[in-house]
Design a binder for these strands. Structure first.
Lengths: 341, 341
DNA sequence: ATGAAAGCGCTAACAC
DNA sequence: GTGTTAGCGCTTTCAT
């Protein structure tokens, strides 16, 4: 393995300037389309830049202009589908701008989040999009003092540093609870993750519990699993739960993937899914469209959250009033796995 | 309006220097753990930096040191699961280093890719991870002249600019073809995307065609769909194809999600999936584990590709020989949807 | 172990 | 329309 030259020989504005016989300043103007430059000069510069293969140095440009076209996006993980989806929303909305996302992951660890934030803020990004509202005091202080727009996404149940975009997971859970009650289910099981940092899943369950309690319905069984949420996990846990508590008439999953696993399991077993046994998941993953039975779910609108967050950073979002909080509506989709009201 | 205020309210090394009574240079040394500094001085500096909430300016640092801890990652899209998965691999492997991924998407458009690359290279990243081997001449030139490690991932069928990591999609397709032939299937249908920029899916089909041709098997029906690959698409297309060509005995899907859609459809219809009707997808999406029937598939090892790519950039990957190409083996997984040999 | 000076490659501000 | 000058906030280098 050869060691590269420690100091890279990149071309500079000066090289283009010399090759074109135009001053560095004018070269800079041409390359940024700024200010008036004659067509003749412009042509000379562009030709020279292209011929030499000049690539500008944004580091120097950013330092001089105090402008950085980077947007920091901080998420717990890229393995849970919801975060890439939110990121895709950010990316989509930034495509119209000259902003570029920089991604950092925290592994659901607040201390790691703090380090990642520090790291990213030291690049002086134009804005920060960060998942969730729960951060360390130090993280909140950094964000508050950064002097840039900060958008906390995918949750609005809490106190944002600056702006917040997303659904209320508590209210979404509450709504599922009322729908369960309205349909006459009585013995509910809950299947969720036990991940500490997953505040959103916790809030969903809390909302659900409240709605059920208000309707006098008890949660008769509850399991928290650890590890990755997929069909297999949903399948196993559902089998175990139905085994242990056979008279359940409803199962709520905090995640569509485990829900779909449970659904396929119950369906294959010949249980009356959607009749005597109700089921609901959460998130409305598009990729599940086309299952033989459509799982009841709630659209958590993470993609839109990403889009709106990006627009806030880009300065193109218009807030209603002066509340920098955008609460999206978590559409409830009954699918085929809950009986009619 | 003073000059300083009009620019920004960020703290500088000078502020920490003044607050601690230590020279800027020594403050810089402390904050980077470089060179010898007395414990007493170090403590003073750290205290001041923390108290003031100092966040270093990496832009200035990068300009002065000519070192940037950013890694450019360029992918066609974030909506196709394979790319976030590869990105997760990159992220994982970079977690041990001080490198940080910057993501750019191209929308499968070579011209957009060119612009995105130019943009990213102007940040002088420490390396580039880019999906695929097909790029415009200008893109290849930029990459070749960047003077940094460039890793083309998720494909090795072609001529890399620098390093390449991934499977051969052609050979993976070929292998599926031989497995189909070995199991005595005779009338094969192929269901793929018609997306122009999806070279990998194309190569898989080409490899498959070759293997089948060598075995004297014909592809009797083929459909190319456009749009997003999900269960629903696989379901629809499968229904349509079986309707049109009822005597098919095998369907190959270039994507697991469409495959799973087809599988669930056929299974619900009571077709003898895995017996008279064989099926195979591609990619081995973990999230599908737990389907009532396991779809035959091929692990395209995109996560590992991302990990290895990141290690190459970080300089911790050891190549075998002096070939900067790492060909991963695309494990064939027969699942339950192909009859025994 | 610490400090002073020079300058990284670019752009803001101002001159012409 | 084009050029000149003076930094941006750090790190390198060299001195002490």
């Amino acid at each position: 393995m050869t060691r590269r030259n420690s100091r890279q020989q990149h071309l500079t504005l000066r090289d283009v300037s010399e090759a074109s016989g135009v001053s560095e300043m004018t070269v800079s103007r041409v390359l940024r389309n700024r200010g008036d430059v004659s067509d003749k000069t412009r042509a000379k510069v562009i030709e020279a830049a292209k011929r030499l293969g000049y690539v500008p140095n944004k580091i120097a440009g950013a330092l001089a202009s105090n402008r950085v076209n980077l947007v920091a996006v901080v998420v717990p993980s890229l393995s849970n589908l919801v975060f890439p989806e939110m990121l895709a929303g950010v990316d989509e909305a930034l495509a119209d701008t000259d902003l570029q996302p920089v991604v950092g992951t925290t592994g659901y660890d607040p201390e790691k989040e703090e380090r990642v934030l520090f790291e990213m803020l030291s690049w002086r990004p134009s804005g920060v999009v960060i998942a969730g509202l729960e951060h360390t005091e130090a993280s909140r202080a950094m964000l508050a003092n950064a002097g840039i727009p900060v958008v906390e996404v995918m949750d609005v149940d809490g106190d944002p540093v600056d702006a917040a975009v997303g659904i209320s997971h508590w209210r979404a859970g509450y709504q599922v609870g009322t729908e369960i009650a309205a349909r006459g289910y009585k013995r509910v099981g809950v299947l969720g993750t036990k991940m500490d940092g997953d505040h959103r899943a916790r809030k969903r369950i809390e909302g659900l519990e409240r709605a059920l309690a208000e309707a006098g319905i008890e949660i008769v069984d509850q399991v928290a699993y650890s590890g990755w949420s997929g069909f297999a996990k949903g399948r196993e846990m559902t089998a175990a739960m139905l085994d242990r508590t056979p008279d359940l008439d409803f199962i709520f999953y905090t995640n569509d993937l485990t829900g779909a696993g449970g659904l396929l399991y119950a369906w294959a077993k010949g249980l009356d899914v959607g009749g005597t046994l109700g089921m609901a998941g959460f998130n409305a993953f598009t990729l599940l469209d086309g299952l033989p039975l459509k799982l009841a779910t709630v659209d958590s609108r993470r993609r839109e959250a990403g889009q709106v967050a990006a627009k806030i950073i880009a300065g193109t979002h218009v807030f209603e009033g002066d509340d920098r909080r955008v609460e999206l509506t978590p559409t409830f989709l009954p699918g085929d796995t809950m009986r009619p009201v």
